[in-house]
Write a protein that binds this DNA or RNA. Structure first.
Length: 565
RNA sequence: GGCCCCGUAGUUCAAUGGAUAGAACACCAGCCUUCUAAGCUGGAUAUCUAGGUUCGAUUCCUAGCGGGGUCACCA
């Protein structure tokens, strides 16, 4: 919306000064609304005009006649500030939002590009912890951002169900848990066993061989070990599905290492024959030294497979089957060298599609790096239980008359919101130190604050009980908060585009918080229900627009906006 | 050692090269017979160092310091 306004103003300036080097990108928002709504720095104009920036600003402000959406033009030092016509602004912004409703903000920026985005690459037979959650929440938010900005986003997950970790867990299972009655959450149970396994293997180095033997038996895809693998693999997969359902994340397709590894071995053989891969120190590698990317191991010297053996065929399958324009991998930044290597190999094999590794920093705890081995870890289950308990307690306190079902449903929305918001509200380059007390707060810069703001708006609209129909009299807007809200609402489409362009949902989180803050100011100073009918109508329209944008913005972050809380 | 990321308030984070560096938490002092106090108001506190580019640098460049990651059989 602002882009449109900036273009209009650019036109206005050019009409009077055709030679001035000015474009939409040159405008800035003033630090304070007292300065105006939009600002044009005049420093660059010294190249075509003889005067100093302040003199130029002054001259421009005198010679350009305000028209259209521009109400007033004022020079402030080297800046040329534009004040917009508030009534025109109101009718432009509010009419569009109320007409488009939840479609407001949708753009065609992506031009229908087919983008596959791979995330939540968890391992079966291991724990699912807050580190995985960052990946899940970030990947999901980016998927939704790409979709809302005009791309065909295809979310997929790639599960490693066939690595050595599987054998480790099953080794410990056979040895220590075989006769135990498994608990209800079987996936979680496997995670616990994996931890035990790493501890036991440290104590008993000889057991490594047993694990190797077990792995070979599983890979043979025959016998009781293979059956055990099939059974326990389902346990993990069911756990993942439960997590995705609770968190409201959907994948179009889930790939499994066990399904692509055979194809991968064939490709490795073929590439080896073609001398694309070579033998070195007993292992099979790709030598990428000439691209300054070191070497990448495909096969260990004992012939067992490493990551790229599955990743290469999977990437090829993706390109062929899904006709992708772009392929995105959301994986921990520690694997950025690996992805540079993988992309280089795919490029050398002739794949020219755009490949992007979205590397985010890891999650650690106040007590240090997460480590399953030492038990310094917050599992998904622990976090979910803890968060649910707190959200239920908080909701009960406020709504003593609510049914249990109502409380649980609302609490769940708060829990999912809290977790997702914590994970995406900071940039991906930032290490998250996950402090459970800090993260499960319901005040300040949190999802709960945004949800609460939304619920308050819903409450007002319910109580007012009037339908907005016919023409709205925007002259009824007299308060600065009403105007500030509209200015903020108008930014939403550009915010979505910026967040999508930079793969940074934190931009959106920030914006929603700003919007909610301004609403709170409005809420304090401006009564909606007590106002005369025309003013009430106009204000209902305004807060209705805020509600739409809050709900939509939260939705893009994968967070629900409850009507009451 | 090579490469990558980070360094902003007591803490956790913001800031397309633009005006007075914003929030949140914590702390102190206030605001609920009035649309949900999960809210609001007020208060104090910050750009790692040294150079450079620029009319203008938290932002870009160089060097250094500090923290983290990664660099062949881990995933």
């Amino acid at each position: 919306m602002w882009l449109k306004i900036k273009k209009e103003i650019t036109g206005l300036v050019k009409k009077n000064f055709p030679d001035l080097p000015v474009s939409e990108e040159d405008f800035a928002f003033p630090p304070n609304s007292e300065f105006g709504d939009l600002s044009l720095p005049c420093f660059n104009f010294t190249k075509v005009l003889p005067n100093s920036p302040p003199e130029i600003a002054k001259e421009l402000s005198e010679k350009i006649e305000p028209s259209g959406i521009v109400g007033k033009i004022v020079a402030a030092g080297p800046y040329l500030n534009f004040f917009l016509d508030k009534r025109k602004m109101a009718s432009l912004v509010l009419n569009q939002i109320l007409k488009e409703k939840e479609k407001y903000g949708k753009s065609k920026m992506g031009k229908g590009k087919r983008i596959m985005i791979e995330f939540s690459n968890a391992n079966t037979h291991k724990e699912y912890h807050v580190g995985h959650l960052r990946n899940l929440c970030y990947g999901d938010a980016v998927t939704r951002l790409l979709a809302v900005t005009g791309n065909k986003a295809i979310p997929v997950s790639y599960i490693n169900d066939f690595g050595i970790h599987v054998a480790k867990t099953l080794w410990a299972y056979e040895k220590f848990y075989k006769n135990e009655k498994p608990p209800e959450n079987l996936g979680y149970f496997l995670g616990q066993i994996y931890v035990r396994s790493t501890q036991e293997l440290e104590k008993d180095p000889k057991a490594k061989e047993e694990v190797g033997v077990l792995m070979a038996k599983i890979e043979s895809r025959r016998g009781s070990e293979y059956k055990l693998w099939q059974k326990t693999r389902e346990w993990s997969i069911e756990q993942f599905e439960k997590i995705y359902k609770e968190m409201g994340v959907k994948f179009d397709k889930v790939f499994y290492e066990s399904e692509v590894i055979d194809e991968g071995r064939k490709i490795v053989d073929e590439l080896f024959r073609k001398n694309f891969l070579i033998k070195s120190q007993g292992a099979v590698i790709a030598d990428l030294e000439k691209y300054n990317l070191g070497v990448l191991l495909f096969l260990r010297s004992d012939g067992t497979a490493l990551y790229p053996v599955a990743d290469v065929p999977l990437a090829i399958k993706k390109f062929k089957k899904y006709k992708l324009d772009e392929s995105i991998y959301v994986v921990d930044v520690r694997q950025s060298l690996y992805f540079q290597q993988l992309f280089k190999i795919l490029e050398l094999l002739g794949y020219k599609q755009k490949m992007i590794h979205l590397g985010y920093e890891f999650v650690k705890l106040p007590s240090g790096m997460m480590s399953s081995r030492t038990g310094n870890v917050i599992t998904y289950e622990n976090l979910w239980a803890e968060a649910t308990e707190r959200a239920i307690a908080e909701t009960k306190k406020r709504h003593t008359n609510w049914s249990e079902r109502q409380i649980n449903e609302t609490a769940k929305k708060i829990v999912v919101g809290a977790i997702k918001f914590e994970m995406v509200k900071v940039g991906k380059e930032q290490t998250i130190t996950f402090d459970i007390d800090r993260s499960l707060r319901f005040e300040g810069f949190t999802a709960a604050y945004l949800q609460y703001t939304h619920a308050r708006i819903c409450s007002i609209i319910r109580k007012a009980g009037i339908k907005i129909s016919g023409k709205i009299d925007f002259d009824k807007f007299q308060e600065k908060w009403e105007y500030n809200l509209m200015v903020e609402l108008a930014k939403f489409p550009e915010i979505l585009e910026k967040a999508a362009r930079t793969y940074n949902p934190a931009v959106l989180a920030d914006y929603l918080h700003d919007l909610a803050k301004i609403f709170s100011d409005f809420y304090r100073d401006v009564k909606v229900i007590d106002a005369d009918l025309e003013a009430q109508k106009a204000r209902i329209a305004l807060i209705g627009a805020v509600k739409i944008v809050l709900a939509k913005g939260l939705g893009v972050l994968g967070i629900a906006a409850p009507e009451e809380m």
